[in-house]
Amino acid sequence: MKKSILVKFSLIPSLLLIPTILWAASTEISGMPWWGWPTALFFTTFFMGVFGVMAGIGGGVLFVPLVSGFFPFHIDFVRGAGLFIALGSSLAAAPHLLEKNLASLKLALPTALIASLFAIVGAFLGLWLSALNPVYIHGSLGLTIIAIVFIMLFAKNTENLEVSRGNKLTELLQINGIYTEETTGKEVSWTVHHTKRGMFGFVVVGLLAGFFGLGAGWANVPILNLLMGAPVKVAVATSSFALSITDSTAAWIYMNKGAVLPIIVVPSMVGIMLGARIGSKLLPKVKPTVIRYIVITVLLLAGVRSLLKAFGI
């Protein structure tokens, strides 16, 4: 008990301090050696990984707003790195989730197909707008992040869903599956409904993923769970896995356009993946709701910072 309180109280201030330190650093330390920023990036993404897992939102959504807001890198390179971070995290999680039958290939295939097509559109649109004026990206990112904060605060997943039959489209696409609920040992059969509306949701998910380089777990899960009726465990796991499909098209576009810098991508990917591993080990020792609210607050600050950047403040 004492240990858990200690862990909580030692982690909370460090999370709150990260943006403050980085904000100060980005304005005051201009003469930092070349290795200073990649090192700061490694430690920041490490903490994003730790807290992202503990808050249940993944570190991907934190990366673009925080790094574009508080680091000196151009937003094009940050978005390119953001896509690879989401891709790397998804690839790392997918084997386990697929083996356990929590992530569903049959659910991911059609939804990720729609999302990855629109991620291509989003990537081109984002790079085109950024070339016109990056202020458009900062402004729309700020607004999107604030909207994400509200979705995270108000969209509550539900366990009490029972979709006994899907619809014609669900049956054509054979979207159903079985997984074993570890807490009870029972096998749970599931299918989904409102498939057309769900697919429309993935149009938006794809556009945002390509446009901002964001991991889209915050949007995937409510669509799969609340709208389409997939069990929450299947929704979370399939969302995590499907990002590796959705983001791969946009990641190729950013890479082909030259927006992927190894000096940003590699420390970030390694940092966030190490952090996520530590975070999953710390998870039983901390209270996820407290961490979740802190992470949401940091995300809100990052969104406001993006908006301020758009107005040149």
């Binding site: 084997p95 599956g177 079985i178 299918t191």
Partner: peptide, 16 residues
């Protein structure tokens, strides 16, 4: 409806 997972999931997991 026959509820089943795609048998290809495990191959996919190994390749990833």
């Amino acid at each position: 409806i026959v509820f089943e997972n795609a048998p290809e999931q495990h191959i996919y997991a190994k390749i990833i």
